[in-house]
Design a protein around this nucleic acid. Structure first.
Lengths: 210, 210
DNA sequence: TAGATTGTTAATCGATTAACAATC
DNA sequence: TAGATTGTTAATCGATTAACAATC
């Protein structure tokens, strides 16, 4: 029983987060029990991998009976650290930042968008979802006061590194980077790259080769 | 010498596309030669993996001398199918679609944004980067006429599947999905999921566990 | 030349898939 | 009960890392 300590592999963590969206869907359709096979069909992998992923959780289904949609979702949430509402900020409220702020369902998944920053006077003070866009100069204070640990960088490439530095200085440990440069940050900081152009390139390769 | 046929693993394809951004950077700084070590340092992996990735390409560097920044970039582009300009469309020109249309540097990486669609009369006819947003009803004809093979879905979740179906019917074989549902499509169609909330969840896990 | 660096094979590591007893 | 399904170990597969001869 080597089942303790949180040490899920990155692919497993990614899939768990994606299962959560699917479980949400099933939940809405009032499906209370789901089997590894059904989840696999919805996801596009196989039942064995689903069970292997769920096996890593602290506890899970009922032997021989499938998983309770609700309990499984709850357990995934807990494992991903979403039980206590995690606070997030967005830096740079252009089209992209605005899109994230308005369309990402933070509150459905144990997070809350706690602050948004920009430097443009046209944007500062505007409201997005009951949240007022703040001046970038207030970033340090706000992040510390509100205990924000995750930040999305949606600023132009040339200022991305300096925004990253400021975030890190003030205690942010998870960064979603939409700029096109590779950021330098201390090892304790996790960076997720969202380089849209790279996704298009991957598609180009696939389209060329089958 | 088992070096033919295009059969790069997904992680390798992803990294190659990311190397390309880095090479671009070095190129701008007039660095003409780059070693596997330098590239690895910039990327954040190790020289061995860089060489292994490049080894998969048809040809590459000069033994003992490093890689020509320009030639390597060109070879990656070729391998990813970006030599002949690949045409792309975006469906749904809300904040997100607008952000992609304006900020993704398609033309720097062998692609071209050839069409954009929406259903709202407020948006149809507007110009983005010399491109006029078209009525969604023109999608089928336009995609076929212009030979568009890649599409980004930036529409609300409830219509995403039907947009996907229309794209596939008209010959699109690569889809970037920004909606929150899992799309059903024939096997010859590649789908890349860009579920932003999942990226945030992955960060949450990392932030919780180190 | 000697030091640096690639191309390429081999070794290691990790992730996926298969299998099946235990359970409901 | 019999059929379905999980939990978990073992087997397979693939990706990363190490090593080093060949080359400049």
């Amino acid at each position: 029983m080597p089942k303790d300590g949180p040490d899920l592999s990155p692919p497993t963590v990614l899939r768990l987060s994606e299962y959560l969206l699917i479980l949400e869907q099933f939940s809405k359709e009032n499906k209370e029990i789901i089997s590894s096979r059904e989840l696999a069909d919805a996801y596009g992998n196989n039942a064995s991998q689903v069970r292997q992923d769920i096996f890593r959780l602290e506890n899970s289904g009922r032997l021989g009976q499938g998983y309770s949609t609700w309990e499984l979702a709850e357990e995934i949430r807990r494992t991903l650290g979403l039980s206590d509402i995690r606070k997030v900020c967005i830096v740079g409220i252009g089209n992209l930042g605005k899109a994230l702020a308005t369309h990402v369902p933070f509150s459905d998944y144990g997070m809350s968008l706690a602050a948004a920053f920009d430097t443009s006077p046209n944007i500062i003070g505007k409201n997005i979802n009951d949240l007022q866009v703040q001046d970038f100069t207030e970033l340090s204070k706000t992040i510390k006061d509100k205990n924000i640990v995750i930040g999305a960088i949606c600023v132009p490439t040339n200022v991305a590194q300096s925004v990253c530095d400021t975030l890190v200085e003030n205690g942010v440990r998870g960064i979603l980077n939409y700029s096109r440069i590779r950021l330098k940050a201390p090892k304790h900081v996790s960076i997720q790259y969202q380089q849209v152009i790279c996704s298009f390139m991957q598609l180009s390769y696939k389209v060329s080769n089958d």
